[in-house]
Design a protein around this nucleic acid. Structure first.
Lengths: 192, 192
DNA sequence: ATCATTTATTGAACTTGTTCAATGTTTTGA
DNA sequence: TCAAAACATTGAACAAGTTCAATAAATGAT
């Protein structure tokens, strides 16, 4: 059950079998049905999660009722609202399963326990946060400099797998455009 | 010279006087004149810096020659290209002083030395990276959901100090709009 | 103080992306 | 398997933001 997780961890740091077991034992599995929520706006995020099956979207609903996707998380991805989790304040985000999914959850208390008792876990999360930050920084630059057409093509190239599993509605919400406009972009690309 | 730095560190973690000294001694001061560069595109980022005086902009130039500002760093802010620094690959970014500035630099080797010899430094950078990630995440949501008008007003409210030190050209490059359009936004706001 | 450079403003024409409403297509669930 | 719901496409009118060119204002260097 924690095979994917251990593999993911060992990709970042080196841990003894014992440390690995101790850390993995802090996680609890949760099954989340398609369309069900792992978290909703207004709740304080009580977990950090590792997806072992399925696909989630982490999104925001703005004052006009439009949805913006912060990121998608499929198998082998970590998932949380880092702001709400870290600062223990109400989240602005929804986390919803887009497929029948399974996730391993660790609580804040257990994560802090791990920081203290397995020092390398500090390094693990330092490296992981760095990686997600680098990816977001790249996305920020792309959003500031590229047209929607180009961002769509980039998305397909960068996440061919997600592209196949997502509806155009979801992709549009990630790209920051209306799904109607995405439809027009698709037509334009197809006609070439 | 390292007063601001020690204060900044102690805001995040607790260190003994000795640990603090040892860590701070790994930094070297660099004076950077207005308009001069701390780093240019294509170079590998060899440092992580802490600004003690002045103001920098970290920006990208896209294929059409337009500049996008990833962030500004004034006194008490950290500055680096985390992607280039971490992965030791050529940067896509420029780092330029917008005022006569001073910065304390630590090399990758010395930072890694600190990770090993002062374990709490691992926590320091984990927390700092989390914070910058949270801020960037918020900016991403805002960029996806808000109009340029609103983003401009938000910027003024969030960074009143930067607002005063920056030209509209720089602010426009941060907001992701042309400076002409920013000018029109300003007129519209002023006329209310 | 003055000239050169950079920054800011403005208008007109244009491009990119949105909105709304209608229609067609696919998926889902009983 | 069939109806309902969700998703995708399209066009027309609109809004947001860009581009270009011209001018004005502020700043900097000497």
């Amino acid at each position: 059950m924690t095979e994917l997780l251990t593999q993911n961890i060992l990709n970042h740091i080196t841990l003894s079998k014992k440390e690995l077991d101790n850390f993995c034992n802090l996680f609890n599995q949760k099954v989340v049905q398609k369309k069900h929520f792992l978290m909703r706006e207004g709740e304080v995020c009580k977990f950090e999660g590792f997806v072992t099956k399925g696909l989630f979207r982490v999104y925001h609903i703005d004052s006009n009722g439009f949805e913006q996707v912060l990121y998608f998380a499929q198998e082998n991805w970590w998932i949380t609202d880092i702001d709400s989790f870290t600062n223990e304040q109400p989240s602005q985000l929804y986390i919803q399963a887009l497929e029948d999914s399974e996730v391993l959850l660790i609580s804040k208390k257990d994560k802090e326990f791990a920081y203290i008792n397995i020092p390398k876990i500090e390094k693990l999360f330092r490296i992981m946060t760095q990686k997600t930050h680098i990816a977001l920084q790249q996305r920020m630059i792309d959003n500031l400099s590229k047209t929607a057409d180009q961002r769509y093509l980039d998305f397909i190239e960068k996440y061919p797998n997600l592209f196949q599993r997502l509806t155009n509605l979801q992709i549009a919400a990630y790209l920051g455009i209306s799904h109607e406009f995405l439809s027009k972009i698709r037509r334009k690309i197809a006609s070439k």
